[in-house]
Design a protein around this nucleic acid. Sequence first.
DNA 1: CGTCAACATAGAGACATGTCGAAACAAGAG
DNA 2: CTCTTGTTTCGACATGTCTCTATGTTGACG
Lengths: 124, 124
Amino acid sequence: MSKQELEVIGQDAACCPGLSAAPLDEDQAADLAKVFKALGDPVRLRLMSMIASRGEGGEVCVCELTPAFDLSQPTISHHLKLLRQAGLIDCERRGTWVYYWVLPGVLDKLAAFLTTPLPTGADA
Amino acid sequence: MSKQELEVIGQDAACCPGLSAAPLDEDQAADLAKVFKALGDPVRLRLMSMIASRGEGGEVCVCELTPAFDLSQPTISHHLKLLRQAGLIDCERRGTWVYYWVLPGVLDKLAAFLTTPLPTGADA
DNA sequence: CGTCAACATAGAGACATGTCGAAACAAGAG
DNA sequence: CTCTTGTTTCGACATGTCTCTATGTTGACG
């Protein structure tokens, strides 16, 4: 149920030297843009927030997410799918319900990508 | 030339308690989503990277940015406008040329918003 | 004042995205 | 097996986004 993520952020260390470190090439920019694009929607951002606020190993059932929006259930499911394809979350079916959680580390890696790594100007 | 930014990130402290801190309300999510949406395009991400890699007080002339892409000059100008409206960059005309720079602190604040502030469960 | 160069704006067309209702799928209850 | 509930997938449509060409604006230079 989780075989189609991007793994953009989670790659070893070659994926992203940091936004401010050096100009991104086209491939890096394209991969990272998918992650930011996934977060670039109010509904998905709220979904991420609702899932992430459960903490490190926390999970949220879809049945808890859906009623928080004035949107149809298929629409919520669609947004969750996009977040999953962006490599931000994952899910598992347990009986009747499906539970979502934030993939560990992705938010920290994304934050590390944004923060400027060379404030004093000592690059290579 | 810089009177229409969002200032979503730059507000005092009431704007964003963190993605993982608590579920975002609709207004917070809508404002933050605009910033992430601005970064959710490969061209804009590369533009941001090219500008940000100049360092803290660094500037980049448009005439240096445009030839790095296989896009028309108005298209680059359009993307720069979106980045500016998202409150990520600002610009100033100096003679014939226009220089862009990253607004100080926005990337760090965005990163702080993403990183989970309560890993052990000691909030409030 | 006229002209040229650097950027920005405006409008149009092609394509992607967000949303819905209907239907399919999965799992448990009777 | 059938029925009900929870969730995803499928088409379809309205809206938004990205790109272009054409035009406007600003400043430098004779």
